[in-house]
């Protein structure tokens, strides 16, 4: 069972990464417009061939 000494901190560290990722996404304003985001994925004007127009 000694392996727990490594595994648990690793597991918590990985979870912490998830938390940090969430806090970062919150800070960068990704939750400000939940309505718009679902439509933006359908827009194609960020494709490379459109960019050159």
């Amino acid at each position: 069972m000694d392996v727990l000494i490594y595994l648990i901190p690793i597991a918590i560290f990985l979870g912490l990464l998830g938390l940090i990722a969430f806090l970062w996404s919150l800070k960068s304003g990704q939750y400000d417009d939940l309505e718009g985001a679902k439509w933006r994925i359908l827009e194609d004007d960020d494709l490379p061939e459109d960019r050159q127009k």
């Binding site: 417009d33 939940l34 309505e35 718009g36 439509w39």
Partner: peptide, 10 residues
């Protein structure tokens, strides 16, 4: 124009 962003929610 640097950024123009519409917020559909509000």
């Amino acid at each position: 124009i640097k950024t123009a962003r519409v917020n559909l929610t509000n």
